[in-house]
Structures are given as C-alpha cells and as structure tokens.
C-alpha cells in the first residue's frame, strides 16, 4: 500500500500472527453461531432451558471454541502490539454479522452495511500498513 513505509522496519504481521488472527475470527464466529443456535431452544422453566442447552453437542462446540479462542488471542498478543491486535480484532464483529445473515437470515440494513464497511476499511488500513 503506498505511503505505508513498510520497507523501513521489520514486518510485524508475520505469517504466524496472521494465522492466529484468522483462527481467532473462525473460533469467535463459530462460538457465537453455536450459542445462538442453542439459545432459542424451547423450554418451560429457566432450569429446564439450561439442562436442555447443556445436553446439546452444539453448546459444547461453542464452549470449546471460546476456550481455544482465549488461547489464540493470547498467542496473537504475544506476537504483535496490543493496539494493533485490538484494531484488527474488530473483524470479528463483521464476521459474526455476515454469518448471522447467512445462517439465521438476520437483517442487514443500510446503516449496518455502512458500519461494516468502515470496519473493514479500518482493519485493511491498520493491518496493511503494519
């Protein structure tokens, strides 16, 4: 990208860092989708709802995803500055919204599309110029 002065310093976003970033997005999105799909289970009481949810394999898929996301996030933070990690980490918001649209037919109104675009542009600027 022009104007980034990327030749003047060592590359921060190494292949390993990018892998952990993508892993973080995949785990976060899968976890949220798993929780969303079990959260709507039919129930009469709150206790029954939790019993039903905990009996579903999808619930455990979600829990496992978030445990591994915790490790992937720590790994990413050990490789790149916190400020950069936090900025490119906002890609999770976009991924979860797109997945919600695809799998649960959730609405994406104009305002939401504009917001998502701003986030993608921001991530591209910060990540591309790292």
């Amino acid at each position: 990208m022009p104007g980034c002065q990327r030749y003047e310093r060592p590359k921060i976003l190494t292949t390993t860092a990018v892998i952990f970033w993508i892993l973080n997005i995949v785990l976060d999105t899968t976890g949220h989708l798993a929780f969303k799909s079990v959260a709507t289970v039919g129930h009469t009481t709150e206790l029954e709802r939790w019993k039903k949810m905990l009996a579903l394999p999808t619930m455990w898929l979600g829990i496992v995803c978030f445990v591994f996301e915790f490790v992937a996030w720590l790994a990413l933070l050990s490789l790149i500055p916190l400020s950069l990690a936090l900025i490119i980490g906002t890609m999770n918001i976009v991924a979860v919204m797109l997945a919600g649209k695809l799998l649960f037919a959730e609405q994406l109104d104009g305002m939401r599309i504009v917001g998502m675009s701003f986030i993608v542009i921001g991530v591209a600027l910060a990540g591309g110029c790292a």
């Binding site: 400020s83 918001i93 701003f118 986030i119 542009i121 921001g122 910060a126």
Partner: peptide, 16 residues
C-alpha cells in the same frame, strides 16, 4: 495510516 484505520473502525461501530 493505522490511526486513520482506528478512526474508521470507531465510526463503523457507531454506525452499527
């Protein structure tokens, strides 16, 4: 460029 990116993200979150 990264600061500009951060500002764009903040704007995006406000839109959302």
């Amino acid at each position: 460029a990264q600061l500009l990116g951060a500002a764009s993200i903040v704007l995006g979150v406000i839109c959302l």
